[in-house]
Design a binder for these strands. Structure first.
Length: 236
DNA sequence: GCCAACGTTGGC
DNA sequence: GCCAACGTTGGC
């Protein structure tokens, strides 16, 4: 989410096995932080310094003002969110209580900012399987809770631990996502790439592959939904 | 505040 | 497992 943010672990807090999947994911954050973690132990956040001024200007700014807008200037209400199925697949989401899970583990500011600043309850989510045999959009979900602190950042045992994220001043946020339906067929990355120079020329998935949470315009969403209905032509 | 070194993402 | 793209870090 970091952008990596690939992400995440399932909903239930303490299934031990669930905590280990995402190591590689977290490692991005991990390496450096680990050593700092020792020193940081419990020091109080210095009095009332401004929380994260330094974080704000660049890092907390929305991706870019226009990036989450549709062509007509309305806000984007569709998001593509990636998850590695080995870590958290669409079936894991379905199996979660109420088919709902928090989207923890995002450790990239741009992706985090989208969740924190732009996602609203009711927004649609395209659930994307990354780093797998057949990467692609597999399902629809929706946002059911707006951003709140990502608790995994506070847990030293979590692969997503970040000692710089304080409870009083959380650095990482997440949203809750609820399953809606699987697509009739997977819209594979390979298939989507065929439209890279056409209908999907602005789609972040195709030109900024590594961003793990991204806005999708209404026009792109419509195109994707139409594409879902088309028969697959294997001529690709 | 630049930029080289380094680490991660994620498709292939 | 490779490696290109790209984000982050830290020295200067």
């Amino acid at each position: 989410m970091e952008t990596r943010s690939k992400r995440r672990a399932p909903q239930e807090p303490s299934t031990s096995t669930t905590e280990k999947g995402p190591e590689h994911v977290a490692s991005k954050v991990g390496a450096k932080r680990v050593k700092a973690a020792v020193a940081a132990t419990d020091k109080k956040p210095s009095p009332a310094k401004k929380p994260k001024t330094k974080d704000l200007p660049t890092k907390d700014a929305p991706v870019s003002a226009t990036e989450t807008l549709n062509e007509d200037g309305s806000r984007t209400s569709v998001w593509l969110m990636k998850s590695e199925p080995d870590t958290f697949s669409i079936d894991d989401l379905i199996k979660s209580k109420d088919s709902t899970s928090h989207w923890d583990g995002v450790r990239n500011h741009e992706a985090k900012n989208l969740m924190k600043n732009s996602m609203k309850v009711g927004d649609q989510v395209l659930f994307y399987h990354s780093n797998t045999k057949e990467p692609g959009i597999v399902a629809l979900a929706k946002i059911v809770r707006e951003s709140y602190p990502d608790h995994t950042a506070f847990d030293p045992k979590s692969p997503y631990y970040d000692e710089k994220s304080l409870k009083e001043d959380p650095r990482w946020f997440m949203v809750d996502v609820q399953y809606v339906r699987k697509l009739r067929r997977i819209l594979t990355l390979k298939e989507l790439q065929q439209y890279k120079d056409k209908e999907l020329c602005h789609m972040k998935l195709l030109n900024r592959g590594r961003l793990s949470v991204q806005p999708v315009s209404d026009a792109e969403m419509k195109f994707l939904m139409d594409l879902e209905e088309k028969e697959i032509d294997d001529s690709a």
